[in-house]
C-alpha cells in the first residue's frame, strides 16, 4: 500500500479509534486486495511504510463484497462499480479478504 495512504489511515485511526474505522478497498484483483488488507490489519508486509510493525486490526472489506454492496443503492453501485464487477474475479477477491479478516481483524 502507498506510504501516504498508510500514513493517512494511521492518523485517522489515532483520531477516531480503531473500533470506529472501516477500510473499503477497490483493488482489481485478489492478491493486491489481500496485501492492502494485511497492511491495515496485521501491518505493512513490505516493512516500508508507517504501518510496518503496527497491527491496527481494522475492519476491511472490498467494495464488491456482499457486506458492502448490499449497503449501497443498487443504481449507484451499478453506475460506479457495475462495469468493473464484470471484469473482476469477485470470488477470488472475497475469499482473500475473508482469509485476511479471519486472521488479523480485531473487530
Amino acid at each position: 500500500m502507498d506510504l501516504e495512504s498508510q500514513k493517512r489511515i494511521l492518523e485517522l485511526t489515532e483520531q477516531n479509534g480503531a473500533e470506529n474505522m472501516l477500510v473499503i478497498l477497490g483493488s482489481s484483483e485478489g492478491e493486491s486486495a489481500g496485501l492492502s488488507a494485511e497492511t491495515v490489519t496485521a501491518g505493512d508486509p513490505t516493512y516500508a511504510g508507517p504501518l510496518a510493525g503496527v497491527s491496527l486490526g481494522l475492519r476491511v472489506y472490498h467494495i464488491c463484497e456482499a457486506e458492502i454492496k448490499d449497503e449501497i443503492p443498487s443504481d449507484l453501485y451499478e453506475e460506479q462499480v457495475g462495469m468493473m464487477e464484470m471484469v473482476m474475479d469477485v470470488d477470488s477477491i472475497a475469499a482473500e479478504m475473508q482469509n485476511i479478516r479471519s486472521q488479523h481483524s480485531k473487530f
Binding site: E79, Q80, V81, G82, M83, M84, V87
Partner: peptide, 8 residues
C-alpha cells in the same frame, strides 16, 4: 468522474 466506467 473517477469510476472505471466514467474513465473508460
Amino acid at each position: 468522474g473517477s469510476s472505471p466506467q466514467a474513465v473508460t
